[in-house]
Computed example of a mutant assay.
Amino acid sequence: MIAAPPFERSVFVNCPFDDDFAPLLQAMAFCITDLDFYPRIAPENANNAANRLDRIVELIRGSRYGIHDLSRCKSTAADEYARLNMPFELGLDHGCARFGPAPLTDKSILILEHDRYDYQKGLSDIAGWDIQAHGGEFAAVIRIVRNWLVHHAGAVNIGASKIQGDYAAFQEWHWERELALGASEDDIRDYPTIQLISAMRHWVDAGRPL
């Protein structure tokens, strides 16, 4: 059994896991990894015998930091239900920090949305919190997450442009490595995000090879 990353360097990421959101999630995960933290997402322990909610609670309790993206919490068509998983998990994380024992009281939370002030239409209770809008742009996600980790987690103070350059270098390295291992281009495009995150950690731990 692989040991969980340390609490002090774990970042729980609560966001959609569909194909449309994948570029933002992957950019976010890379930024976290490049700054030597560990992104924690629900699919990482999907084979756990516990139910999904218990697995999510375990990740929240094991992460000092939490990033919650609320950009998919509204319905987009008539008779469609709004998606409530993301605000529910934000509530779990906030409750864990507010009512849990130390070191959970040291938790820090970042909330993201697509367009500024969107959250006020459905979650006005968090008015006054510092909500960051990314506009669906992966470069904006990297800047926001980088600034937050530097300010709140003491991450190394490297620029967002450097992280974007690292991300491009990683993608080239990963693509070439997987092709050399016999994967097709379609295979690589179809890799689950959790496998990509594992490759990001390997690339960083290996000294960021070119």
Rank of each mutant, 00 (worst) to 15 (best):
F30I: 01
F12Q: 11
R55K: 14
D69E: 05
D118N: 14
N45S: 06
K121P: 08
E137S: 14
D205T: 06
N14F: 10
D190S: 15
F99A: 09
T76S: 11
H151F: 13
S184M: 01
E80R: 15
L35I: 06
V204H: 02
E178M: 12
A29F: 05
Y65A: 03
Q26M: 12
I188F: 09
P103K: 10
V57P: 07
N14P: 04
R40N: 08
A139D: 07
W203Y: 04
D20V: 11
P16I: 03
E80L: 02
L110F: 12
A49F: 09
L53F: 14
P103L: 10
A127M: 10
L112H: 13
N51T: 06
L181G: 02
C15D: 08
I144D: 01
G182Y: 09
Q164S: 04
Q132V: 01
F88Y: 15
N45Y: 07
W129K: 04
A29K: 06
P5H: 12
A42V: 10
Y38L: 10
F170W: 05
I197Q: 00
I67L: 08
L123I: 12
Y117Q: 08
K107Y: 10
R177M: 14
W175A: 00
D186M: 09
S198V: 13
P16F: 06
D54Y: 12
Y167A: 00
D20F: 13
F88V: 01
F21T: 05
R61F: 06
R189N: 10
A50S: 14
I2P: 15
A199E: 09
A50P: 01
A153G: 13
G207C: 03
M200R: 02
N14Q: 11
D125M: 13
D18F: 11
D106R: 15
A46N: 07
S124T: 09
H134R: 03
I158L: 07
G182K: 05
Y81S: 13
D125I: 08
N147Y: 04
R143D: 06
A140S: 12
Y119R: 04
M86E: 00
V145H: 00
D118L: 10
L179K: 01
I131G: 02
W173M: 03
E80S: 15
I163M: 02
A78W: 14
K121Q: 15
L110E: 09
H68L: 01
P23W: 03
E44Y: 14
A77G: 00
L59R: 14
A78K: 12
G91C: 05
N157D: 15
P5Q: 11
L53E: 08
D93T: 11
H174L: 09
V145P: 00
S108A: 14
W203M: 02
D106A: 12
D69A: 01
T193D: 11
N48S: 12
D115K: 11
G182Q: 05
G100T: 08
H94S: 09
